[in-house]
Amino acid sequence: MREILVLAEHRRGEIREITFEMLTKGRDIAEKTKSELASIILGKNIKDKAEVLSRYSDKVLVVEDDRLELFNSDIYQEALSHIIIERKPLIIMIGHTSYGVELAPSLAVSLSTPLVTDCLDLFFENGHLTAIRQMYGGKTYAKIKVKKADSYMVTFRQGVTQPVERNFKGEIVEIPSPILKEPIKKKVLDYVLPSVGEVDISSADILVSLGRGIKDRSNISLGEELAKVLGGVLACSRPIVDKGWLPRDRQVGASGKTVKPKLYLALGISGAFQHIVGMKDSQLIISVNKDPNAPIFNISHYGVVDDLFKIVPALINKIKEVKKIK
């Protein structure tokens, strides 16, 4: 029986959520293609992690090697190449994460296995592996047909599949480390933890979040004023931090903070997935964007298609009126 092989992603002792998301999607594909769902975990002292994976998988492959302690894609590539060549899985699923984007393309090229990156959905159609992915910053969707091959590789987007807890008892199989060559060209030396900022946006009830639509550093004060009258805290998308208009501890998203406030007001934010992944679970999302096709509207509860420079001043006035602030 062919395998759908899901690469478990773990960091600093934790299996990352994308793993369970992929195992959930992988189960669906395995059932439809009558394949077996296998997960594979590589690392140092990670045997105890196999248990939780076995609840989602028909089989868990465990590879232990001291050289796999840190995530070095060269060493992962060496180990996985041997295993993939031997097992010939139908589909290899890897997270579209900072680890996955480092590993998957060069692994795919070296094995001549067709790869589609950043998939939201996967299925077979007329015998072709077919993927749904976003393009143009999430404003359009594309149906991608993959060239027929013996094996396929995909990287899968985080936060689009709701993980479903299962009660499988997959067999745990230890595989002797197949690493032959010492990688010498790349060494992972250390982690750097984010510096503790002054503001913890993840504990705020109300966030007023600014995106590139705010246009200029001098307009940040408009967001500040709205946050103040609302009794909320100012947050932002990545370009605002990249430009140095707000400090890094205000950034919401994949490479910033994950937030779940009672109210998230998104002003001039397009809604790239790296932003959405950090705020989509907010209780109430209201977005103001002048582009009706901005992907932020996909996950907003309420949307205003208008110029934020018209809406925000009106909103500040209205709140002041209601709160009787002068």
């Binding site: 994460t97 900072s98 982690y191 750097v192």
Partner: peptide
Amino acid sequence: NRELEGGLEEVVEIK
């Protein structure tokens, strides 16, 4: 320094 999720970074030496 390469960027990981959540503001974490990794220091990598490469030839």
